[in-house]
Design a protein around this nucleic acid. Structure first.
Lengths: 214, 214, 214, 214
DNA sequence: CATGAATGAGTTTTCATTCAT
DNA sequence: CATGAATGAAAACTCATTCAT
């Protein structure tokens, strides 16, 4: 069951098999409910080998987070042409994001659900990636805003909140698209574009919603 | 340690103490990492009493989810005047939401993080609340749109995605506001309003972002 | 559920209710698997009252054994006319025995199964009754042998073994009759009579089976 | 404390040590009162190893029943020469039976007392063996009856009751022989032979005891 | 390089038993 | 007399982790 038991593989390959098994198990069972036994069996190796290569459950989980984070950011970057206009870059990036999360639901569960629910150490690991994505997206948005309008001149903390909101929205949409049959990455990306674009547009036209005095 | 050890309390009171301790422990440690020992000690009672009143770890967690979900929806409802104009209602609701999540970070962690990561039974429990909130907010947005503009005539699945995105954005902002010192509920609500208001406005003016053909 | 909850009963009555509940629970669940909670609930009283009247689980179980042992011997005695011929007395006694065990399966389970499987203290309790029955039956057999034949002159230890065998056979038949639908007490008694009577007859005619020398 | 602590044994050996310890503990303490801790310590291993090899308390108990049942039937079969005359076979089988139960009192307690008092699953396990023995013994008796007399022509349910009575008698004698110092397997077997032989003989001579009309 | 054998420490859960009212 | 409130102690079972081969 699991990977075919082939003897004498190079270390790098074995490690990838273990990470595959671990991501799948962590993503489905959750970090704590996943047992090293199950992971080793699914990887087709003995438990001591897992420990020899990956040290501990914590280290194994961290390695999973890192690999999946790298894979996700790489996928997004690969989907984007840096020469294209900003809105096109945003659109391509979002599509790449939703496509990747749809294709790797266990990896996405590890990043979005598990890594954030089991201690600050893991959360920090995934936050690095998150920040990178936030920076990437925000910069795109601002660039595209600059291209279309005069200098927006938004206060920094407002931008930060905005970025959070945008990323949160995208993350939620990824979960929702994974859980809802028939929703494509394209559709999810379109929803996000409408959402972000219009919201941003108005805001930068200096027509913000004004809270009541209360 | 924890609650003062007062003997012989009526059952209802003890149950609340236990739920307090459980929400705090589940919220901080996570569902699986939280031990019944720790919860009992924090509640100032012996473990058998916890089991006598709340049956099992699963039931205890479910009780926590339900109590916190009820508290959150109650807080939002209490913050809103049903006679007020729609945008005012939305604003008040968001402020109540962010205020409550800021005041009850452990409860919010239980609802937003823990309940969704440990099995469908728990997720279903919290989804009931989520759907209620989604319905509440979406209806407000639509109402306010109707008041300000002509009939929007949006396709249903687009609205569904939009609602997901909005709720996801709010949830992310709640986490972010909790984690970022100096961000008030008011600010978080304002960000959301700008975002939602403007975005919706544009969308309903039939100026959606149009994806490229590729 | 269980006995109707009537307030303020005289102690003796309450005690019998508790013993009823205990016999039923011990007989069905077994001594260890039976919980004092279940017994108290079935008896319609609170647990502390059970302890007040019957001290401990051990004492309660002992009281059950004693009561059921007394009831069984009383039933057998009541079925026998001491003036009747010996074989008639044996027949009547066996019928009374099988009738009682059939009517009180839980009590019989307590005596035959539970009391012998949970420590010497309980086993001793039930052995007192067993010995009484052994003595009663054996004496009847010997008397009837004397009446029908010349003095048998059987060695004492042979008689002892025989008595054990007879009682064991009867006990097994009682279990078997309880477990097999359609087998009446009368049939069980007839089987025993045939068996015991003929076997004894032959033995006392000094035609025993002779073991090979090996 | 129990077995000498020898490290690194092959699995099969360790399993037998565990079963030894388990039979002893279950036989003396009873199924429910026996703790896995005690069994593990007596076996000279840690508890997790017991669970690794034998899964659960239930499975461990079942394994004990099966092993002891097999050992008992094997001992009886080994004591009997299938070419010998029927009464000789019966005699040899009974001696083997009483010898084995005397040498393995804990195993006998597991089979006779514990397995029958703790749930149908266990009872079924031991009943398979019991039926095998009943069939073996009954067939021998009938064969020997056929050899000595004309065709007995007994009704089926009478035979069933008879077999129950015989087996019950033998079981009781085994307990009694174990509990009574100075009683040998040979004596117990002789008592059984007399009992069964004479009883059966008369019965098949069509001289049954006739119940009164009452 | 790879693994079968083994365990310390912890988990959830249950139960007989007792106060304080 | 009767009970709701409470617990110490122990049970079955699991898991991450490590040697010896």
């Amino acid at each position: 069951m699991g990977a075919v038991k082939t003897k004498r593989m190079p270390r790098a390959v074995r490690e990838q098999q273990m990470l595959d098994a671990a991501v799948r198990t962590f993503g489905r069972r959750g970090y704590m409910a996943a047992s090293m036994d199950e992971i080793a069996e699914l990887a087709g190796v003995s438990k001591p080998l897992v420990y020899l290569y990956l040290n501990s459950k914590e280290d194994l989980f961290t390695a999973c987070i890192r690999r999946e984070a790298r894979a996700l950011t790489a996928a997004v970057r690969a989907g984007v042409e840096t020469d294209a206009p900003a809105d096109r870059q945003l659109w391509d990036g979002l599509r790449a994001f939703f496509t990747h999360t749809a294709r790797h639901p266990d990896g996405w569960a590890v990043l979005h659900l598990q890594a954030r629910t089991h201690g600050d150490a893991f959360a920090a690991e995934v936050n690095a990636m998150r920040e990178e994505i936030v920076a990437f997206v925000t910069q795109l948005i601002l660039a595209s805003a600059r291209a279309a309008h005069r200098d927006p001149d938004l206060p920094a903390d407002e931008v930060a909140g905005l970025a959070e909101a945008l990323v949160g929205a995208a993350e939620s949409l990824a979960d929702w698209a994974n859980a809802t049959p028939g929703v494509t990455a394209r559709q999810a990306a379109a929803t996000m574009m409408n959402f972000a674009w219009a919201g941003l547009g108005n805001m930068m036209d200096a027509r913000p919603w004004v809270p009541p005095v209360s």
